[in-house]
């Protein structure tokens, strides 16, 4: 068994891996320091099963003994496991990111549920990505490869999980602009209106228009379209969607993985797989 214990230093926590043999501490190795979020007492317990797959359990707060602790996060709750080749520090980073997502808002949780509903096991590994992308998904090998130079980020993990949902909905399509824009909308809905980012490279005018539109179809972030009819009550609503898709695509250059001709027949229906889910 491998155990990670936190040691607080003012507002930061220094993380160490402690290895016990027969109940005795035989080694202790510094892993990393985290300095954000609430200060909490956490234990991370890692154990490899007979197949050698590492399972890590995070227990935070005072009640760390039982499996009913609401702060206990098991990797079993998400069908995306870290690969064995990742370092312990990276695995801990991944577990912490999943833990944050599990404690996110309703739509965030719904996304994890919808991803699990796909019923496939995805492996998350660190490695090199095309053009230095933050992450990429290989649908056929069920692998998410994360840029080995970067930490795990909730928003980008959301995007990769959602790409898997899209693949389950549309299959393997080449309409990258459509796919990426729908994923960007999904992520912005999760972020709520406090921080929309899909149009980061557009002018303020377009950003304002996009913000107003997204607020209008989400009742200012309070509810989300659950069906095609709710999102596209008329042809004007469809035209508006494709107007913003064009603006999104125009941020990229030909050759970029987010750039492609726009498919005006591909409407964003994967998003409803998430918005129609319960977050409980």
């Amino acid at each position: 068994m491998i155990q990670g214990k936190n040691k607080k230093t003012n507002a930061c926590i220094d993380w160490y891996w402690q290895t016990y043999i027969d109940g005795e501490l035989v080694s202790e190795e510094y892993v990393f320091t985290t300095c954000e979020g609430e200060e909490v007492e956490c234990d991370a317990i890692g154990q490899r099963d007979r197949k050698g797959i590492l399972k890590i359990k995070m227990a935070c707060g005072g009640n760390q003994g039982g499996g009913d602790d609401p702060n206990t996060v098991l990797l079993d709750s998400i069908n995306a496991k870290p690969c064995n080749a990742m370092t312990y520090a990276d695995q801990m980073d991944y577990i912490q990111t999943i833990s944050n997502m599990n404690n996110g808002n309703c739509l965030q949780k719904a996304l994890l549920h919808a991803f699990n509903d796909l019923g496939k096991q995805v492996t998350v590994c660190k490695g090199s990505t095309v053009n230095g992308a933050i992450a990429q998904t290989d649908y056929y090998s069920n692998t998410i490869t994360w840029n080995s130079n970067l930490s795990f980020y909730e928003k980008t993990l959301d995007e990769e999980f959602f790409h898997n949902i899209q693949f389950g909905t549309y299959g393997n399509v080449n309409d990258h602009a459509n796919i990426e824009f729908e994923a960007a909308i999904m992520c912005d809905m999760i972020q709520t209106s406090a921080n929309y980012t899909a149009m980061d490279q557009q002018s303020t005018s377009v950003r304002n228009e996009y913000s107003t539109w997204l607020k209008s179809i989400t009742n200012n972030g309070n509810s989300f379209p659950k069906s095609f009819t709710e999102m596209f009550p008329d042809d004007t609503a469809k035209q508006t969607y494709f107007y913003f898709l064009e603006k999104y695509r125009d941020q990229y250059q030909p050759g970029d993985s987010h750039y492609s001709p726009i498919n005006y027949n591909l409407l964003p229906t994967a998003i409803f797989k998430v918005t129609s889910k319960s977050c409980n």
């Binding site: 992308a133 980020y153 928003k155 912005d188 490279q201 941020q251 970029d256 987010h258």
Partner: peptide, 13 residues
Amino acid sequence: LKAPSVVISNPEI
């Protein structure tokens, strides 16, 4: 914005 395209909509990076 003049920036690599990977930073678009990825404030975390």
